[in-house]
Simulated scan of single mutants.
Amino acid sequence: MQAKKDSLIVVSGGMDSVTLMYDKRDSIALALSFDYGSKHNARELAFARLHAERLGVEHLVIPLGFMGEHFHSDLLLSGGSIPEGRYDEENMKSTVVPFRNGIMLAVAAGLAESRGLKRMYIANHFGDHAIYPDCRAAFIRPMAEAIREGTTNAVLTEAPYTSITKTDIARIGVALGIDYAETWSCYKGGEIHCGVCGTCVERKEAMREAGIADPTQYEE
């Protein structure tokens, strides 16, 4: 029997959220993306839209322009240059967007409650934890509890990739038949992936460690 479509997913258009959308496709009624003023928003959103359409899922983009206008982060169009190097390097902390997941989850929770949806998914994963505090289990757990207690229909928040790596996610995606050429990771948001920013380096390593041929075109 087909599962009831009673869930929402926060989807950026990157590897992780696209994989989770296919992973949970049978229950997803709404794919929710945010335009918050990042350098790579336009690239990501195009792929979020593509996969939602392919799966026959309604796709909604919520503008959060105040973040790009008032918050400080090199990830934003209003910030400085995107640093190069691995995620675990000190310079990558400049790409933190303050409380980004908290804001997005709060909006998603209100939308889920308004739509009568019982569950929402977010695709944070273990590799994000080093520099992004709102990707850690220590944040997700109490945030999920606050959302459940603060919504009239007790919306559940599920983050099934919290304790796994991007390599693990890549393996899941390939098993699901996802073409990762149709996802976006690069923080610089150019015509093609730069190949040297933290998220490009992580993407390359995940593909290699998973034994997957990387379909991504890189500048370097």
Rank of each mutant, 00 (worst) to 15 (best):
H51S: 13
L75E: 13
D134N: 06
I212G: 03
R25L: 02
R136D: 14
G177H: 07
S94R: 13
G80A: 09
L20D: 05
M21K: 05
V11R: 00
V18W: 01
G150Y: 07
I122K: 08
I122Q: 07
I172Q: 14
L111C: 07
M104W: 07
K24C: 07
G189W: 00
G177Q: 09
R100G: 10
I140V: 13
N41S: 15
G14N: 10
S38L: 09
G102V: 02
P142I: 04
I28N: 03
G211H: 02
E191C: 07
G13H: 01
L64Q: 15
Y22V: 03
G150R: 06
Y87A: 15
A210P: 04
A3S: 12
H40K: 12
D88G: 10
I147C: 09
D134I: 06
Y132P: 05
G211Y: 01
D88E: 14
D168F: 01
E205R: 12
H59Q: 15
F47W: 14
K4R: 11
Q2W: 07
H125S: 12
S7L: 07
Q217G: 06
H125V: 12
V11F: 00
D35P: 03
A138D: 14
A206T: 05
A213L: 05
T183E: 11
N91Q: 08
D74I: 00
I9R: 05
